[in-house]
C-alpha cells in the first residue's frame, strides 16, 4: 500500500508534500515515515494519506478571463496620474 507523506518543517508552517512510501498497514507506515522523513528532527509533524484517498483537482480554465479577480486585472498608473494632475499633486 502506497502512502503519501506531507511534512511540516516548523510550527505554523504549511504541510508540504515530501514523497511517498510503501507500507503494509498504518502502524508500519507510521514507523517508516518517522525514520524516512523525520529522523534528524527535520519535521515537526507528518501527515500520512493513503494514495487512493487523495483526490486531485487540476483543471483551472479561465473561460471568461475573469482578471477582475486578480491583481493583473487592475492597471492604476494612468488613472492615478490623471487624478493627481486634477488635484495638482503630480510630481514633475
Amino acid at each position: 500500500m502506497i502512502w503519501e507523506v506531507f511534512r511540516q518543517e516548523r510550527e505554523g508552517a504549511a504541510f508540504a508534500h515530501a514523497g511517498s512510501l510503501e507500507a503494509a498497514d498504518e502502524a508500519f507506515a507510521r514507523a517508516y515515515a518517522h525514520e524516512l522523513y523525520g529522523r534528524r528532527n527535520e519535521s515537526r509533524a507528518l501527515w500520512l494519506v493513503p494514495r487512493g484517498e487523495v483526490c486531485t483537482v487540476d483543471e483551472f480554465v479561465d473561460e471568461f478571463e475573469r482578471n477582475y479577480r486578480r491583481v493583473d486585472g487592475y492597471s492604476l498608473k494612468t488613472r492615478l496620474r490623471e487624478a493627481r494632475e486634477r488635484a495638482g499633486t503630480q510630481p514633475e
Partner: peptide, 22 residues
C-alpha cells in the same frame, strides 16, 4: 548506512511509480 538505505527506499519508490516494481 541508514541514510543510504533510506535513499534507496525513496529512489525505488520513484521507479515503482514509473511502473517498475521494487
Amino acid at each position: 548506512v541508514q541514510d543510504e538505505v533510506g535513499h534507496a527506499q525513496l529512489i525505488y519508490r520513484v521507479c515503482e511509480d514509473l511502473g517498475a516494481p521494487r
